[in-house]
């Protein structure tokens, strides 16, 4: 054990805490989700279950609110008074996943720093470090963190279903928090490959499981720091910018559909949603 190492590490840690997260990003992975294209088919959610070894909890626990769907399709129904009701109006779908906030509220509250900001602009969750205080989800306005309330692995994948588990990431046991990682294992693989071939990552070289599975292409994933990526272009097209919230300008152009959820809380989400164009006046 080197005493110098400890001190250096501590001072580095202290500085990091004062400045509040990262400022020198290598990448900033982000998304654009077009709600116009979302048909609520849940393919993204299913793909996520397959890719990320998400536990299937069963009907009882799902009803109790103990499900583990990192990617969930939220359904919102119109008020009966506000005009047309179900089924004419139908549901409004909102694919909800971790927004990988730039100023994430989950990070400062974790007592053991199990969740932290990576140079990739992701909120990483270190399962091995997590002690399960669950403060992060309490402080998450999106409620997209999922806690292993039980040892789900015991019953989630009865033989031979355990053969389909993704070997690139772990299966979590009870007592740890988990959440969407933007398929960090795919990001790592792509980065490693690019490094071996001595080149930069090309946009579209890889995708998250949800973006890959979406039949209508509603989810676009990419590096928002890469000026040529599809996602950057979409963000620019809809005039959505990263960074702290500045009070909303009244919308001049109906074509500009981009918004970030709970932007006004100043959490700087990495996912831009494109508003759904509706038949009726909202």
């Amino acid at each position: 054990m080197s005493f110098k190492n400890i001190l250096e590490n501590f001072s580095k840690y202290r500085r990091g805490a004062e400045e509040g997260g990262h400022h020198e990003y290598e990448h900033r992975w982000g998304m654009a989700i077009d709600l116009n294209l979302c048909i609520g088919c849940n393919a993204c959610s299913t793909a996520c279950y397959a890719e990320n070894n998400l536990a299937v909890v069963g009907k009882d626990k799902f009803e109790k609110g103990q499900a583990m769907h990192w990617m969930r399709i939220e359904r919102y129904w119109d008020d009966a008074d506000a005009g047309r009701d179900f089924p004419e109006q139908g549901a409004l779908f909102l694919p909800m996943l971790c927004q990988q906030c730039g100023a994430a509220t989950c990070e400062p509250v974790c007592p053991v720093a199990a969740t932290y900001h990576t140079p990739d602009g992701l909120n990483a969750q270190v399962y091995n470090r997590c002690i399960g205080s669950r403060y992060c989800n309490n402080n998450c306005p999106f409620r997209v963190r999922y806690f292993n309330f039980w040892s789900y692995y015991e019953s989630s994948w009865p033989e031979p279903l355990n053969m389909q588990l993704n070997p690139d990431l772990s299966v979590r046991d009870k007592g740890v928090m988990e959440k969407c990682t933007f398929c960090v294992q795919r990001i790592r693989t792509a980065k490693d490959k690019a490094q071996r071939e001595n080149r930069a990552i090309v946009d579209g070289e890889f995708q998250t499981a949800c973006a890959q599975a979406c039949p209508t292409g509603a989810i676009v994933f990419g590096d928002t720091m890469d000026p040529n990526s599809r996602v950057t272009k979409l963000w620019q097209e809809h005039e959505v910018e990263r960074g702290p919230y500045t009070s909303k300008k009244p919308k001049q152009n109906a074509e500009l559909r981009g918004y970030r959820i709970f932007e006004e809380l100043n959490v700087d989400p990495s996912i831009m949603y494109l508003e759904r164009v509706r038949e009726t006046e909202v």
Binding site: K61, K64, G65, Q66, A67, G132, R134, Y135, N137, N138, R143, Y146, F147, N148, F149, W150, S151, K174, G175
Partner: peptide
């Protein structure tokens, strides 16, 4: 068995 025994769920951590 885990914290599920305490009946907690996603919003109620």
């Amino acid at each position: 068995v885990g914290m599920g025994a305490a009946g907690l769920n996603n919003p109620h951590m």
